[in-house]
Design a binder for these strands. Structure first.
Lengths: 261, 261
DNA sequence: CACCGTACTGCGCGTTGTGCGCAAAAATCG
DNA sequence: CGATTTTTGCGCACAACGCGCAGTACGGTG
């Protein structure tokens, strides 16, 4: 293979990200190759997600907050966004809150970017990325083993860090939830960590969109404390909510604008 | 029927910013107008700076808020990349390595993405992001307080996590380094953490491009251990390297292809 | 050293998106 | 109601694109 291929592609990405925009003709002249070759490079780099093509060139792909969020949140974007808005409104000035991993809680972090005088501790990469640019929010990462499926941290380091802090509120996500068994996750590491998180917090919120109510996709369970708040969206069937209310769970159903119904 | 023209254009912007990408054909079908009309809309919106055009559509535009990090990585990119390549070659199978925060060490993480049977612990967001997609690399985050300037974690949580692990190698970055005083950083939190990191590792490497040799930009210093390795690029003056060699430091100068000179 | 497989490059061709001018339709205003 | 402005649809020339083909450099193998 011609030696400079990989180097040229990396250089293209670098040029695009630094100057913002690069034309095929310009790149062709810079590296002394034909436009065809540049086009192939751009096609390859685009499919690799490194940059975006424009008519006649390419531009840097910038992780647009809303766009990347949308991508992660997937189908239930409206629901998760509404739930996040309501949850963000519960957080008062000067508080210390704990944020779980997961896309719904990531949406909450997105809403909290503008907060001030707030301390956020988290086990989620998504939360870290959302708050990396929030100058006025103090962020503590609990650390731990990176779990790629959920983009969060679990394990002994996270548990040890948790034992050194307490919180005004914890906002949890879940793969499934039932009134009797609590939170359902893929691994016991996750459920154990979530149980610990509930014990270290004064108020416990579970943020799940309606489709997750009553779901039992896995077989690891985390028991919920005596008092907690279930936050879901308007798509939730009353019959799905009844068991929670019967067990004394505070249930909040959120409209599309983020207000409680 | 120009009734909803303005409304349609606003909707286009909204669609582009929420879904990240919108094609001409898709938009044409959505609003039931011809592709020509959509193209005119996009041309108008582009010149107004509301979005960016791509081949066959448009995407959300974003002001570059995080350009600072990319820009920093852009400085001395060749040097950092070469240093990272050499450093990656030092890591053997089955090892456990510790990676500092910073752009040069981030470049090392980039090189390690393809590794297998490797455990990486880190205090750097950049490293986490680089390795988030590396399926075969086990990643441990040490946690701590997020320090935005360096995109890394410092403080008690990081130090506590560090005391529970040891490493085959540690790869450090620095804002400046001298033969007599060691590593120079902006805060004592950082230098204290780096000192701890050197104590927990069998082999210590400092990755700095030539411009940082002898620099003293701040007034917090971390002392280096008895034996350590300075890795820099070919732009380093022999006179800048002499003091390190005189102090018994192992000095490695790397060529642009990542091989030691 | 000859051989072969892989990966990349350059070139030509058909396809596709794009910009522009023009005429018709809709909305605004006197 | 008629004039003006804005917007829309359509056709055309042009530029960019994707794809297949042939040629070439690099690395491994007998």
């Amino acid at each position: 293979m011609p030696r400079g291929t990989q180097a040229r592609r990396e250089a293209i990405v670098r040029l695009a990200t630094t100057s913002g925009l690069a034309s095929v003709e310009e790149l062709s002249a810079t590296f002394d190759v034909t436009p065809s070759t540049i086009r192939r490079d751009l096609a390859q780099l685009e499919s690799a997600g490194e940059l975006a093509r424009t008519y006649g060139g390419a531009m840097a792909i910038v992780a647009h907050p809303e766009a990347s969020l949308r991508q992660r949140l997937g189908e239930a974007f409206e629901a998760k966004s509404a739930i996040a808005k309501w949850a963000a409104a519960q957080v008062g000035a000067g508080e210390t809150v704990l944020l779980d991993a997961g896309s719904t809680v990531g949406a909450l972090a997105h809403e909290l970017r503008g907060a001030r005088d707030l301390t956020v501790a988290t086990t989620g990469m998504t939360v870290l990325e959302e708050l990396a640019g929030a100058e006025r929010v103090h962020v503590e990462c609990l650390g731990g083993t990176l779990r790629r499926l959920s983009a969060g941290f679990v394990g002994p380091l996270a548990e040890a860090a948790l034992s050194r802090m307490t919180f005004d509120r914890v906002f949890l996500g879940a793969d499934g939830v039932t009134a009797d068994d609590g939170i359902c996750e893929a691994s016991l590491q996750q459920t154990r960590l979530k149980e610990l998180m509930t014990r270290r917090s004064d108020a416990v919120y579970l943020l799940v969109h309606a489709a997750k109510l009553g779901r039992r996709p896995f077989h690891a369970w985390a028991r919920m404390p005596e008092r907690w708040t279930l936050v879901t969206d308007a798509a939730a069937e009353p019959s799905a909510l009844a068991p929670f209310r019967a067990n004394g769970v505070q249930v909040v159903v959120v409209g599309t604008d983020g207000s409680a119904i």
